[in-house]
Amino acid sequence: MILGFDIISLSLILLCAVLALFIRDLMGSVIVFGAYSFLMCVVWACNGAIDVAFTEATVGAGVGTVFLVSTIYSTTRIDTFKKNRLLKQLFMFAVVCVVGVLLLKTVTDLPQWGDAGSPANTHLSAYYIENSIDQTHVPNVVTSVLADYRGFDTMFETCVVFVAFIGIFSLLRIRKSKTKNAATTSPTTELTLPPHQEVDSLIIKTASHLMVPFMQLFALYVVAHGHYSPGGGFQGGVILGASLILLAVSYNFKKALSILSEKKIILLVSLGVLIYAGIGVICFFLGGNFLDYSVLHKILPATDTIMARSHAMLGVEIGVALTVMVSMYGIYLSLSSNGRFDKGL
């Protein structure tokens, strides 16, 4: 914990939040929230939570702003919130005050920062720290906790990403047969959209040619070395998705679909979850519990029960990375093309 860094960056974060409230152009708010996530990452890093900081960095810098910008592109830019109803505003202010006071009351009950006597530190953390290397041969405790000790949690987190993608995709997707039936209404919706023409800049294109392969190799490195350094499936998947989004942004929408078509996106998203759950089911059939990786040494060559856990964690991370990568890309495509999958940002 570095006190001076924390104080200044936290106050800057507060300023960011307040500023984002007062800007009427939604693009401005989105851009200011970019700074919010940058500073949040610094706060996590200064408190030593490296894996969280890495997640914040990849999500905040890579995909968060892009999602919001593409949402604004396919909807509207002006904050249409009516400010003239005094009673409603007063009511909202009262609600916010009550919730804030309740939250502040809860803060006093939380344990001190780094308190060795808090329940989390006396029971769980000590067990993980003592046994992680002996039981799994994984130096980075965060990875072993996420992928092994709490494998169920992570599996359902992956499912949350999957469901988020499926939700956005199926809510926004407009089938061509349906638009034919509604041909009378479609011209009016076309008019409200901004006029579309393909623009691509040579500099951005060449820069992304240079960067994208290295970005992807770095992402694969993050996935493969999750055992030793911060990162893992989720972070690597987000970087992979961000590299695909960068390609899609620097070219046009057709090129974006030629990288991964709609069918492939749905297939690969499901495949990622299938890999994760499949490893669990294989454990089940080999006589262990669901997601009990240690029984996998019966089918993996040259491993004992401990190394089997380590290797299975890698397999699980690959599944997470696949799901996250493709769902990030799919969410971007759905949002920026407003579900039409023909043209977009």
Binding site: S201, I203, I204, A207, L210, M211
Partner: peptide
């Protein structure tokens, strides 16, 4: 590579 590109 990235900084001049972003400026541009």
């Amino acid at each position: 590579i990235g900084s001049p590109t972003a400026t541009h």
